[in-house]
Design a protein around this nucleic acid. Structure first.
Lengths: 192, 192, 192, 192
DNA sequence: TATGAATGAGATTTCATTCAT
DNA sequence: AATGAATGAAATCTCATTCAT
């Protein structure tokens, strides 16, 4: 499984042959089929694993203990840091859920979709908490904002992973996202 | 080419056989190779076509004539509307650039990447204009914000295309994105 | 198809590889799949062909014009001769319907079964004609006798095909079957 | 061995995997090879077992004590009953000797053939006894009639096993076979 | 320009058999 | 005697590409 993860994350699903996976572990091809139904099956299990892994990492710290907007933003920043650390350390997670899962199967698409929806649920929960506490405007589109937040995070992680100076890139992205989420981009003096 | 576009957009690159494309046009397989080098070649040309098509559609209306933040926001709203119309009418554009292009080739990846960067350039240009005119804060991360904007737009388009009531979904997404971009989500009274 | 017939009749279904069939025609393996769905498909079509072939050969001469028991027996002898000629010339027909078709699939079994039932129908028809005309005893078990007749004919054909002196074997079997069918084996003086 | 018999009789030789047999006994695959050379070997031994089993059951009651044709026929009926009981209770015997043994190997074919010849020997012996005692016509083809008898018995057994009302089917088949063997199907008044 | 049969490399999958423990 | 993971040789099937016509 670890081997399959490594190979697929590097070459992509379609360019990975069973033999590549077998070779990675040093075992014979045939043995693969003792552990997995077929090629799709590994992929499916890898998705499950990734979902579990990230869920665990992300949903560890729940919202709720923030007393002011600053604290709320601070908490959000910590969450974002955490997310970026996970997603940048292993950029295949984003690639897997966003890209790879599409070109295979209706079933895989749905699986990845469900995972993304799960994250949106989590983000929604955060947003609702912010609204309930009066930190966020009550008229925002919760679901869409949550989806948008996720898309931005995954895109950010992808870009950070591609960049040379990851530390700097991460800082820029964290700032950009927090700015967008909290205050928007409008200049203060321009606000009526 | 049109036929290839149709088939690949429906089945995806990997599940599309040359014969499928030939069948779609009614011609014989062999003829395919008079028009295209090989399978990858069609895909490559399709990407080019899509980039050209969307570039044309999007970059038609340049920024510049906005005198107030309201006008700036209004212009942004029109651009967003325009984008959504294009991307929702043909959801394969998003799928192509974001998903399909990855699982094939280093070359295709880069090509799609370049297209996305192009859009980011365009968005950056918009943002810079906003800053120059004093509508947007001068300290925002321009490049990252542009990327984020794009990611959100593509995600929005994808979700709208999947939704049942597309009109309503489009409205929600337009509001969500403009809110994020302009004012952020923070409640006014919470702002210091 | 002819090639597949030849190879399978010689080596049997399970020991025949697609490549064997391809080699027999001199074509590449892949081409096989332009003409047949898969391996089972050829076999299925071969059964159909064999059924058609033998049906045609056998059911050509219908019963009905016999005026006496001798004529009836004579007609039966001719039919038997005809059958033996067909089945001995190509012993694979028996092997196919009786043996090969079993070890593959529920579907193939049923197909062969149906063919055998068809022959039994034909034999039944013959027997009923004999009864109607008063040549045969009205109290015999028609269906069972028809099945029995078929079994004996296929077994006879198989044995003739295996024997050295086919002409002699054929004569012996024809006599044995006609004896059984018409007069039984009881000695005349022993009959009460 | 019992387990192998059960599995193969149900799924057929080719669709039976060693693991299926192992699973049936609850033992590990590897242990199979302590008891049998290889896959073919089980099958071979199963044939031997079946031959022994049926030989024992059938050849128990020898002919010889019949004084009249009626007694002879009665004895034959008992033998047939006995055979049917054995073959219907375990229809795999017929399938094994007639069908399965063919699609595997020259060696298996010959083995099954030898078994069938053995039965023919036994039937021949019966027939010769009938002739010697004047119950059967001296001019019949002994060997062919014996083969024919066997073929009919196996076919009958197969059909009985497939039928719903086995008791009734057995009666019909017994009558049909005895009729054929003893008196034939010709109507008495039609005989010259 | 067009056809579509033919090619053949390559990928997945199965399973009898071996072997270390 | 027993286990069951491991092996790897086959066999089936797919499909991009070529080629004779």
């Amino acid at each position: 499984m670890e081997a399959a993860y490594r190979v697929i994350s590097e070459k992509g699903y379609h360019r990975t042959r069973i033999e590549d996976i077998a070779q990675e572990t040093g075992m014979a091809q045939g043995l693969f089929y003792r552990y997995f139904e077929n090629k799709k099956d590994v992929f499916s299990q890898i998705i499950d694993m990734v979902i579990a892994r990230i869920s665990e990492g992300v949903m560890a710290d729940a919202p709720g203990t923030s007393g002011t907007l600053e604290e709320y933003a601070e908490q959000m920043k910590r969450g974002l840091d955490n997310l970026f650390d996970i997603l940048v350390e292993d950029p295949f997670i984003s690639k897997l859920l966003f890209h790879e899962a599409q070109g295979i199967d209706e079933e895989m698409s749905r699986k990845a979709q469900k995972a993304l929806d799960l994250f949106a649920d989590f983000s929604s929960f955060y947003i609702k908490d912010g609204i309930a506490k009066g930190f966020l405007r009550p008229d925002i589109e919760i679901r869409e904002t949550a989806y948008a937040f996720n898309a931005v995070v995954f895109e950010g992680a992808r870009r950070i992973a591609l960049s040379k100076d990851k530390g700097k890139a991460k800082k820029s992205w964290t700032k950009a996202i927090l700015d967008l989420m909290i205050e928007g981009t409008a200049a203060p003096q321009a606000q009526k």
